[in-house]
Design a protein around this nucleic acid. Structure first.
Length: 685
DNA sequence: GTGACCGTTCTCTAGACAGCATGTC
DNA sequence: CTAGAGAACGGTCAC
């Protein structure tokens, strides 16, 4: 809890009069307690601050205060492109402030970014910019990191911490402001960043959390809520009871003038819950709902699109990653404008853009993870619940976890009483270390094992586990990289490294990226992907020209770990295999040489899907032929284009006479332009 | 033969970042 | 001890 603090008024802020006026115009007079605490902690005076506070408790203002008072340009780093967009637009409203944005799909040239007061970017984009030597990074006076608790994420956490560590070196003295969800160990993050910790559970709209036990809901403030489950169904299974209960909770909330979010486990269940709810008309405004449905239908003629439009007519939406981006954005904005009463969603919505509702219902608290059913992390559930309570609209927010008489107590203990998990660095994972060691060497920040270790020393991992000796791990990683021809490892050297950093007694090895390694690092693909591409290029060189087709390049690219796999249905397995045999000459690997037959089949399926798309197949056709969502087609194509570019760059550095990658890439980009409603924006508005 | 009905078996499962270089009315 | 929804399948029975 924050201690007693004198109120801080907008007029007290060391910010331009225009900005103060802007705040007043949007109804801000006095700062929220966590914001005041951040000011107290020196946020406007260049101090490093870690703010571990709930969503919607005013993080954006804290960030703005830091950025506007910084003595130079500022960077706002986010984990999601959609979030970058959202923040870009909100910062652009600030008077007298120029804002730029930089994400993989939405980007301005470096020189322009250097001229902005504020740049919004994804963390990966920042990492990539650093690797490629973008100059704007070095002039930064302030860096705000949104959702720092993602430091604990398996793949993206390490890039966040390495980026932050190198950023502090590239721009010495930058003010670091880190915004975190409530976690168990915010003080670890704060001490790593040498920052003041502001910790609070204060929210502008109070939140009560409750558990449904098959009979009624008991909230943590002691109140209860009857749930009127229609007794039409008798002898139901547990699952049916759960969805009937969530339907009742959703409808109850809407009846009393609220909006609701319902979280379920899978895409299919999000859609089927939506269809179940859409049986009743829940639209706050019928005309607006009809307009929305028309707009949705306008985007694509996919069966998913039709279902979404149909649900929307009743004021119901669903939301998951299988949706085309445009549909997702439409659902989000329609909900914000109160043209939808409910969204049935997978966890995408929990960490995405701002979509507050009066009530949040979490129906599924377990998830299938590949081998087993596992319980959702507390942090994730809290983020879902935290969406409850619309400022200025709701008297309170409520979150309900749906269980039954058997599980209710367990849910209560786990998610209501217990706190969230601690953030733990994942940098020690070999895979993560491999990519970051390569990048640090390739971009010239280190040239020996000693200097790499020196850099890693500034990392969250080193801060958290000072006793772990990374040098052994580093040796195996450099060995692997050199086996991939990405890194040259020299023998122990007496030169270069300063004596005081050479903690590794018997000297340190010289490290240098090969030209392949440099390309891999610049292209931002993982080392294993690079190795795979190199291997593919070499076998293509040895193939008969007639056998090298678009499928060849796509096959190589899709077999790469940077390509997300799809699920292979049992039913399609035989068909995919037949396809592979029919086109065996074009593929670079035969099934018997694949170390993982399943993965090989998935790669073939993806290559085929993207190939057919490039041949002009409509998204609709692909969606029902390959059991993927429209959004999956979109993201597969985008990713393929990226990897084909990397393949081409590697072919060039190998000096190989291979141009399939580039040819196929161009063809994909062209068909993307031809596909209506599917173009990717290239320039900020 | 056919269609309604019902119990059993089978299938399937969240999410999402990155490169680069031009063209359009 | 712990998955569970829903589609697909297959069988029965009445007419």
């Amino acid at each position: 809890m924050t201690g007693p603090l004198a109120g801080v008024h907008v007029s007290d802020l060391p910010v331009s009069a225009a900005v103060r006026e802007h705040y007043r115009a949007s109804g801000i007079e006095e700062l929220y307690p966590p914001q005041a605490a951040a000011v107290e902690a020196g946020i406007t005076e260049g101090e490093n601050v870690v703010a571990a506070i709930p969503t919607a408790s005013g993080k954006t203002l804290i960030a703005e205060l830091a950025m506007l008072t910084a003595d130079g340009p500022a960077l706002y780093a986010v984990p999601l492109r959609a979030l970058a967009r959202e923040k870009y637009e909100s910062f652009a409203d600030l008077p007298g402030v120029s804002v730029g944005i930089s994400t993989g799909d939405f980007d301005s040239p470096d020189e322009e970014l250097g001229a902005e007061d504020v740049v919004v970017a994804t963390a990966e984009k920042v990492d990539s910019a650093i690797r490629n030597g973008a100059s704007w990074v070095e002039d930064l006076a302030c860096v705000v990191v949104d959702e720092v608790h993602l430091l604990g994420r398996e793949r993206r956490g390490p890039t966040l911490e390495v980026t932050l560590a190198t950023l502090q070196r590239r721009a010495p003295g930058v003010q670091i402001v880190a915004l975190s969800a409530t976690v168990d160990n915010p003080e670890d993050v704060a001490s790593w960043l040498d920052a003041e910790l502001v910790e609070s559970t204060w929210r502008p709209v109070s939140l009560r959390t409750g558990v449904y036990d098959g009979d009624d809901v008991t909230f943590d403030d002691g109140s209860t809520l009857d749930v009127d489950v229609s007794d039409a169904d008798e002898g139901d299974t547990d699952g049916e009871r759960d969805t009937e209960a969530t339907a009742a909770l959703v409808e109850g909330s809407i009846d009393s003038g609220g909006q609701c979010l319902a979280f379920v486990r899978s895409r299919r269940e999000a859609e089927s819950l939506a269809m179940r709810l859409a049986e009743d008309d829940l639209a706050p405004d019928g005309d607006a709902a009809a307009d929305l449905a028309a707009e949705i239908r306008d985007v694509d003629g996919t069966s998913t699109g039709h279902r979404l439009a149909e649900a929307a007519e009743s004021g119901v939406g669903f939301h998951h990653a299988g949706l085309v981006n445009e549909h997702r954005a439409l659902v989000e904005s329609a909900f914000r404008e109160r043209n939808l009463g409910v969204i049935c969603a997978t966890p995408t919505l929990a960490a995405g853009v701002n979509v507050p509702a009066r009530r949040v219902v979490v129906r599924d608290l377990e998830r299938y993870t590949g081998e087993e059913m596992s319980k959702l992390p507390v942090l994730e559930v809290h983020q879902m619940c935290g969406r409850a309570g619309r400022p200025h609209l709701d008297p309170y927010g409520e979150a309900v976890l749906v269980g039954d008489e058997r599980t209710a107590e367990d849910l209560w203990d786990r998610y209501v009483d217990a706190g969230p998990e601690a953030v733990e660095s994942q940098l020690a994972a070999r895979e993560a270390l491999r990519t970051h060691v390569l990048s640090v060497v390739a971009s010239g920040f280190a040239d020996s094992t000693a200097s790499v270790l020196d850099l890693l020393d500034a990392t969250f991992f080193a801060h958290q586990s000072p006793d772990v000796d990374l040098s052994g791990l580093l040796d195996t990683v450099t060995g692997e990289l050199s086996g991939m021809e990405l890194l040259d490892v020299g023998e122990a050297t007496a030169e270069t490294t300063d004596a005081d950093t050479a903690a590794t007694g018997d000297g340190s090895d010289a490290l240098a990226a090969t030209s392949l390694g440099e390309t891999v690092s610049r292209q931002y693909v993982r080392p294993e992907t690079g190795a795979r591409l190199i291997e593919g290029i070499r076998t293509i060189e040895g193939m008969a020209d007639d056998d090298v087709t678009a499928l060849t390049a796509l096959g190589v690219v899709c077999a790469t770990p940077d390509m997300r796999g799809t699920y292979l249905g049992n039913r399609e397995r035989a068909d995919v295999y037949r396809y592979a045999s029919r086109h065996a000459a074009a593929f670079t690997t035969a099934p018997e040489e694949a170390d993982d037959f399943e993965a090989w089949l998935c790669a073939v399926k993806l290559a085929r899907l993207v190939f057919e798309w490039s041949e002009g197949a409509s998204i609709e056709a692909l969606v029902d032929r390959y059991r993927v969502g429209p959004g999956d087609v979109e993201s597969h194509v985008e990713r393929t284009v990226w990897l084909l570019g990397a393949g081409d760059a590697l072919a060039a550095t190998l000096d190989a006479d291979v141009d399939v990658f580039d040819r196929v890439r161009r063809r994909l980009v062209d068909s993307a332009d031809d596909t209506p409603g599917d173009g990717v924006d290239r320039q900020p508005r």
